[in-house]
Design a protein around this nucleic acid. Structure first.
Lengths: 141, 141
DNA sequence: GTATTCGTTGAAAACGAATTTCAATTACAG
DNA sequence: CTGTAATTGAAATTCGTTTTCAACGAATAC
């Protein structure tokens, strides 16, 4: 058993000659419940139930998640890296309200297609992308 | 006299009750010659001719450039903020090679239009955006 | 012009997030 | 089991960003 992400992660761990640990399992489990946690966010989120998991371990786990492809690193302009679970569903992008911090996710296949065209015209192979629209949400403007 | 960016900057400085200084003029001039400098890049770039301009001053100037709209802050995944001159208010996006670090700029008005549509459907007012495509350039793949 | 005011400067210190160090611990192959 | 090598958590370190502060300098008033 295990979720889609757990399977990918465990396979990656095995392939790299790394080790499965209870901490990593717990961190992954909690990570998948959150939206765009920074290391600090996730660490705090675990803190109540697992006082014994250290900040460094959380951060190291997040980097592994990014390496094995179940998370991507994002940066919304506050000074911290945020890690986002790449859920089985499609890639999505973000609308970020610069006033209140609201983040709305969206996806648009036409934009994705145009991106592929652009890349092709520059002989580029696209592996990943980031699209963020910054502005004011309905309530803030 | 003065470039487009100089005029905007000077007006902003005046409007805010700040002061025009020789350092700021020099920093702006050099900034406009570069592509995506980090504070460190620009500081080093000035170093040869102006040993007397400090790192903090360079960084403070860059933040002012971003505030007054002649520069935007970017983040390409190395741990440093990069400041990009907003030339001729023509927005452009980036193809980033994750292997060799090559950065190709492009623009695509169809993508921009679709972005506006997406924002509108969420009652968002877009003030700025970032689009980066990460992958391998022709030589690296 | 001169004085006064208040923003600016540069060096150094402080800050904060990311990363590394290290001794103790633990997973797991043999 | 046992030995080996990866992992852990706390603390230390690194590195980019930001702030502090005394000296300085630009703009305004006189």
């Amino acid at each position: 058993m295990g979720s889609y992400e757990q399977n990918i992660f465990r396979k990656y761990i095995a392939d790299q000659g790394l080790k499965t640990t209870l901490q990593r399992e717990i961190i992954l489990d909690e990570f998948l419940r959150l939206e765009h946690p920074s290391t600090e966010d996730l660490y705090q989120s675990l803190r109540s139930k697992h006082q014994n998991i250290g900040y460094a371990t959380v951060h190291r786990a997040l980097k592994l998640f990014a390496e094995c492809g179940i998370a991507t690193v994002r940066n919304f302009g506050d000074g911290a890296q945020r890690f986002e679970p790449c859920r089985e569903d499609r890639h999505h992008d973000h609308l970020v309200c610069t006033r209140c911090g609201l983040i709305i996710e969206f996806e648009n296949s036409q934009i994705e297609k145009l991106q592929q065209q652009v890349a092709k015209s520059h002989a580029f192979t696209v592996l990943d992308h980031r699209l963020e629209l910054y502005g004011l949400c309905e309530r803030c403007k």
